[in-house]
């Protein structure tokens, strides 16, 4: 198993670094524009992009076994399950037209 011999090169690391720096500046810049609700979308989009780059290149997942992909994916998937099912409650609390919560308006 000679997996590390086809890992990323120094050049790729530098490119990744440049991209991360660029996105950092970009996200600050965008924050000062008024995009309405899209400010959040863009900020999160950029953060996800940065995270993906780090995972793929710095953390070598792009060059790793299927199992590593599966593991990284499982972590994210179950995180989304937590978000989605918890939010499902909060989003739908008002739908019945009765005040279901005493705590949140």
């Amino acid at each position: 198993m000679a997996d590390h011999h086809h890992g990323p090169t120094v050049r790729i690391y530098l490119a990744v670094f440049a991209a991360l720096m660029f996105f950092t500046v970009l996200t600050v810049w965008v924050a000062y524009r008024d995009l309405g609700p899209f400010n959040d979308v863009v900020a999160l989009g950029i953060a996800c992009t940065k995270a993906t780059i780090v995972i793929l290149f710095f953390m070598h997942v792009k060059y790793a076994s299927r199992l590593t992909w599966l593991m990284a994916g499982a972590g994210v998937l179950f995180l989304l399950i937590l978000f989605a099912f918890a939010m499902a409650d909060y989003v739908s609390r008002g739908w019945l037209g009765i005040p279901v919560s005493h705590y949140l308006q």
């Binding site: 011999h5 990323p8 690391y13 990744v16 991360l20 710095f58």
Partner: peptide, 15 residues
């Protein structure tokens, strides 16, 4: 981010 780069380089050199 810089520290991530230097860390990645340390791993690279370890190979």
């Amino acid at each position: 981010i810089v520290s991530s780069l230097t860390m990645a380089m340390a791993v690279h050199e370890s190979h």
